[in-house]
Structure formats: structure tokens, C-alpha cells
Design a protein around this nucleic acid. Structure first.
Lengths: 212, 212
DNA sequence: CCAATAGTGTCTGTAAGACATTATTCC
DNA sequence: GGAATAATGTCTTACAGACACTATTGG
């Protein structure tokens, strides 16, 4: 997770999810930007990643009164899944001076600002619930990957480690369905090298999923 | 679905989802009501049903620019599942003069105001995805019900009609797990009367599901 | 050869889909 | 008795979990 250390007053020193405000325009003529577009814009501003490179999905709206002590804020949380091989391209910009990467569950609730711990929790549940959809897995694994790498991703999100043999069956089904294909080369390890694969149609951009 | 026929300007004559605005308070001191509380309040105002009687869940936020031609509105959609035996208690009140009940998919997109067709579509998908959770089914069936009645509900939401024999297996599992129990009496039909059942712990209110 | 990790095979139980059959009521 | 609908049973196939086993590399 990419979090930003807060430098000012509420929750100073704690980590917070990157975010911003929806541009709502100035009245009748200009109604501003779509909600999805605002999320995409913020993503780009904060990480320099194009929305076409990631899987950007709405999680839920969070609107408890008092969740921001300064003023009433209702936040619509989005989660962006970023493939590991794109992480080096992330250039924290704009208001993201103090950005750091964390493993999921690396931080406790007390180190997170506002209600962001609850948001993160729900975002993880959101992603885990849709793990079967291949586009989720495709967004969490490098462009080419081994069976074991994909297995670990599934294990992390499902909470329970995946059995190598059983996971292989799922994997073979993906191969037969044409979702995955062999890629050239091997992944070198401390011992026996592993075969690498790729998701087939990664070229046509994954783009943003529906929501209006 | 409970919809309201619009009497004024935008989409006059079309049907719209009941809704309202979140009370946001007046500044630092009073930040207004929680988002969930606003949904519960609107439910009560429009239907006279207590939030404890229904299953109220957030679906998603809808924030396309221009979705309301009058002004910029970002709507957070909630869906409330109302048991059929409670429907007679619904007393359309407040701004709900022209309220009518519709079957899901009874109306075409052109008869629905704003982007409410998309909202409904997503709400149905939301409910269908969680049909396995017993509380969903419990909220869509009368206090006592037959196997066939529950089967029809599953059939409607899953899109495909459920096989009587196969559904019975699921049903028996619910019985063994103590989720469902026999109720006294029988449901009279044109032919063989059917046994009736009930969900066990319906007394402790279902209440609103988490979201902050 | 040994350690280490990748990859394969097998057995078992559970559940889903399709479909045939029996049972009980009203008329 | 016959129509109608509730309830039950059976066969097949797919898949998940657990676990034992083989293969191929570096040292």
C-alpha cells in the first residue's frame, strides 16, 4: 500500500491514504468531473501512473460524521491495483512528499489517520472477494510470472496459503481457457528454475471498471 | 421496487428512486448525521419502516457529472430489502405522493429518471452476489415460507430458475445448520399443501450492516 | 551427493447439474 | 380417477482439500 505520512495537525505523524477532492465545477454550466475521473486524476497526480496501467475500482463511500475533525467530509474510496513491475515507475509527486510503501497489515490502526484503517480493511475484502476474476490477479503480478508467484498472491489475499498441487489445477484451467500462456525464458532461483507465464490479452488496456 | 413518479421538471412523469440529502450540519460544532443514519432516516420518512425491520446496505456511490441536470449531485445508493409481509405496512409519506411498487426489470431504462436504471442494475447485482448469505434470503421472504417460495427468490436473483431437487439439497443443509426450522401449519395451494419454514433467529434485529 | 525449490500424481469428500420418480391434495 | 404441485431419489461430473511423490537445478 502506498501511504503518505501526514505533516500537519489532525493525525500528525500518522499515515493516510492519498486522496483529494472532486472538482465539482461552478454551477449550471460546468458540473466538474466525473467521480471516476477524479479518482483517475488523483492517481496520476500522486503516483504519475496512467489509469490505463492499473485496475481502478470504487470500494465504497465513507461518511461517518466527525471522521475528519476539521470539517464534514464524505469520502468515496477507490482502490488501484498496481503491478509490481510498475512500482519503480511510481514517482510520488504533488502533495505526496512523505510517501512510503507498506505491506498490507504492516501498520496497526493507531498508526493510521482518520478512519483509513477501516477503509483499507474494506478495500482488502473487496479485492479478495473478486480474486476469481482474472483481471484482479493480473493486476497484482508482474507482466511475466511463475506459478508460485501467482499462488502466493492468491494466498495473501485469501488469507490462507494455497496448496501447490491444488493451485496448479486452477492454473491449468486458466491455461486451457486461454487466460494465461507460456512466456519465454525461466525465472532463476536458488535451485530449480521455474517456467514463466503471462496473461494473454494484457495489451488492450484493462481500463477502469464500470461505475457511474 | 418502490419508485416514485416525478411530478416536476427534470424527467417529469418518469419514475425515480426515493432519496434525499445527508444532513451535514453547520460547521465545526455539528457535523450532521452519519451517512448510514441518513439512509435509515430517509427509509423511515419515505416508507415508515424502521431500519431494524429491513436489511439496509450501501451499494455504491454514483457521481457522473451531469447526471442531475439541475446541479452537481453525488449520490450514495443504498438498497433496503423488505420482506413481503411487511409491504402492507409501507405507508408512502413525505414527498412520496406518487409511489408505486414494481417488479424488478418491469420498467425500461427510458421510464426511469436520471441514472437510476444503472443504480438499480448495480443494486441487483450487489444483492445477487451475496445471496448465499442467509440474511439476504431472509429479507426477501415472508416470516414463514415454503421451500418453493425460497427457491423462486433464488431463481429470480440468480437469473436462472432453480431446479427443485437440487435446491432442496441446499435447503436441507440450511435446516441441518440450524439456519432454518419447521414452522407449524401448511401453505394451501391449488393442490398439495406445502410445509412452511422460518428462519430461526429472526427476533434479534437484523440491523444495518457495517460501513463507516 | 545434498539441499532446495519446481512441478506432478492420487485419493477422498462435497457439491452442482440434469432428470426421473413418488406423494398428497383438490376437483 | 385425474390434474396439479410438493417432495424425494439417483446418476454423473466437477472441483477442493490433503498429502505423497518426482524432477531439476546450484553448491
Amino acid at each position: 500500500m502506498l501511504l503518505i505520512r501526514r505533516g500537519q495537525h489532525p493525525f500528525k505523524g500518522a499515515y493516510a491514504l492519498p486522496g483529494g477532492f472532486v472538482r465539482v465545477g461552478d454551477g449550471h454550466r460546468d458540473q466538474g468531473e466525473d467521480l471516476d475521473a477524479a479518482a483517475a486524476r488523483e492517481l496520476q497526480e500522486e503516483t504519475n501512473l496512467s489509469p490505463a496501467q492499473v485496475l481502478l475500482e470504487q470500494v465504497a463511500a465513507f461518511g461517518r460524521a466527525g471522521r475528519d475533525p476539521r470539517m464534514r467530509v464524505i469520502s468515496v474510496a477507490f482502490c488501484a491495483l498496481i503491478r509490481p513491475d510498475l512500482i519503480p515507475l511510481v514517482r510520488a509527486g504533488g502533495d505526496a512528499h512523505e510517501a512510503h510503501w507498506f505491506a498490507v497489515n504492516e501498520l496497526g490502526r493507531e498508526q493510521l489517520a482518520f478512519d483509513h484503517a477501516a477503509i483499507i480493511e474494506q478495500a482488502i475484502a473487496h479485492v479478495a472477494a473478486r480474486m476469481d476474476a482474472s483481471d484482479i490477479a493480473a493486476s497484482l503480478v508482474p507482466a511475466t510470472f511463475t506459478i508460485q508467484e501467482l499462488r502466493h498472491v492468491h494466498g495473501l489475499l485469501s488469507g490462507k496459503p494455497q496448496d501447490p498441487g491444488n493451485f496448479r489445477r486452477k492454473f491449468e484451467r486458466l491455461l486451457e481457457d486461454g487466460v494465461i500462456e507460456r512466456a519465454s525464458g525461466k525465472r532463476l532461483t536458488a535451485s530449480k528454475p521455474a517456467l514463466v507465464y503471462r496473461f494473454v490479452s494484457r495489451s488492450p488496456t484493462p481500463a477502469t471498471r464500470r461505475t457511474s
